[in-house]
């Protein structure tokens, strides 16, 4: 219910923009953490699109998510520059530390793990991003374990 009013508010603010769909999806994900399936009919109606079109756009883009994320989102860069300084070993470690694979959430719901293909810090990899704006360069398994403990100790 609360979600629906948020969505209506966002639609009212953005639906008249040219090419409004991506800005609307971003606002919804920023507000709710994901794009709930029951948002699709309202978006389709507001933009005069079919539900299938809206659904097609949501699923096309890697960034949009249709299920709620964990309390934190950890993105590990797996692109070439980070590969050259060992991001694959880090990726293996991170998966076992969280006991979950990429594009999944740890069992306790603390962390959703995502892969990202370049964060733009390629001179100081391996790089990770925690939630939307926290960045950590030259990541190692040991540093990651410390960060994870910190994340989990926060409420």
């Amino acid at each position: 219910m609360e979600n629906l009013s948020t969505i209506e508010r966002i639609l009212a603010a953005k639906q008249s923009l040219p090419g409004a769909l991506l800005p609307i999806l971003h606002d919804i994900q920023d507000a709710l953490g994901y794009i709930p399936p029951d948002a699709v009919p309202s978006i389709a109606r507001a933009l005069n699109l079919s539900r299938a079109e809206v659904h097609g756009v949501i699923t096309y883009y890697h960034y949009f998510r249709q299920t709620p994320p964990g309390r934190h989102v950890v993105r590990v860069c797996r692109a070439e520059a980070c590969q050259s300084v060992g991001c694959e070993a880090l990726a293996t470690h991170v998966q076992s530390a969280l006991a979950c694979e990429f594009h999944a959430t740890s069992a306790d719901g603390d962390v959703t793990l995502e892969a990202v293909y370049c964060l733009g810090h390629c001179a100081v990899g391996p790089n990770i991003q925690i939630d939307e704006t926290t960045l950590h360069a030259r990541m190692t398994p040991e540093k990651f374990d410390r960060l994870l403990a910190e994340l989990r100790s926060k409420p």
Binding site: H26, E53, H62, Y63
Partner: peptide, 20 residues
Amino acid sequence: AGAYVCGEETALLESLEGRR
């Protein structure tokens, strides 16, 4: 929204218009 191919100019324009 995290699609590499949207750096290709025509895919970018599609995306700006609100499509895949």
